[in-house]
Amino acid sequence: MEVTVETTVQAPVEKVWEYWTEPDHMTKWNNASDDWHTPFAENDLREGGKFVSRMEAKDGSAGFDFGGIYDEVKLHEVIAYTMDDGRKVKISFKGQGNETEVIETFDAETTHPIEFQQQGWQAILNNFKKYAEETNNK
């Protein structure tokens, strides 16, 4: 089953793309709640390239690597990848002036309820929106 989350970021698509894909930025927004963080991210943004980010609870009680291989990369338009567990993800970027719609569709996993997964991915996307808008306005 596919799940979709989306947001509209008040920033041009070129900046949104940069904030989404550059490891220095990824480590600043890639978490669903304030008690988690991403201390490490690596990104080889090209078809066949790999990425990985380390997501951890700030208190050290839990953590995991999130990674995969890129299937499609179209500058400022689409990023599609296969996660390490075989599930697919597609992110579309639709820029219009100083506004960019980000639509992320992912294959759900079977361990957690769909609603829980959607809320988690949406929380990360909301955190991205907040970071991108604050960074763009500096």
Rank of each mutant, 00 (worst) to 15 (best):
Ile124Gly: 08
Phe116Asn: 12
Trp121Ser: 13
Ile124Asp: 00
Trp121Ile: 11
Asn126Pro: 09
Glu109Ala: 15
Asn126Tyr: 06
Gln118Gly: 06
Thr110Phe: 10
Lys129Ala: 06
Asp107Val: 12
Phe106Leu: 09
Ala132Asn: 04
Phe128Val: 08
Pro113Cys: 00
Asn126Ile: 01
Thr111Asn: 14
Glu109Tyr: 09
Thr111Arg: 11
Asn127Tyr: 06
Gly120Met: 03
Ala132Lys: 03
Glu133Arg: 05
Ile124Arg: 00
Gln119Arg: 13
Lys129Phe: 07
His112Gln: 14
Glu134Met: 12
Thr110Leu: 12
Ala132Arg: 02
Gly120Phe: 05
Ile124Met: 14
Pro113Arg: 04
Thr105Lys: 01
Phe116Glu: 13
Tyr131Met: 07
Gln119Val: 04
Ile114Thr: 15
Ile124Cys: 14
Ile124Glu: 05
Ile114Ala: 11
Asn126Ala: 10
Ile124Phe: 06
Phe128Lys: 05
Gln118Thr: 15
Thr105Phe: 06
Gln122Pro: 00
Asn126Arg: 06
Gln117Met: 07
Glu133Ile: 08
Phe128His: 01
Ala123Thr: 08
Asp107Phe: 06
Glu109Arg: 10
Gln117Trp: 05
Thr110Arg: 11
Glu115Leu: 03
Gly120Arg: 01
Tyr131Glu: 02
Asp107Ile: 10
Ala132Thr: 01
Asn127Phe: 07
Thr111Ala: 15
Ala123Pro: 02
Glu134Trp: 03
Lys129Gly: 02
Glu109Met: 14
Gln122Ser: 09
Gln118Cys: 08
Leu125Arg: 03
Ala132Tyr: 05
Glu134Val: 14
Tyr131Val: 06
Lys129Gln: 10
Lys130Asn: 14
Asp107Trp: 02
Ile114Leu: 14
Thr111Tyr: 11
Leu125Gln: 05
Asp107Gln: 10
Ala123Trp: 06
Pro113Val: 01
Phe128Gln: 03
Gln119Tyr: 10
Ile114Met: 12
Gln119Met: 14
Ala108Cys: 09
Gln119Pro: 00
Gln122Tyr: 09
Glu133Ser: 07
Gly120Asp: 01
Thr105Met: 05
Lys130Gln: 13
Lys129Met: 07
Tyr131Trp: 06
Trp121Gly: 05
Asn126Val: 05
Gln122Ala: 09
Phe116Ser: 11
Ile124Gln: 04
Ala123Gly: 09
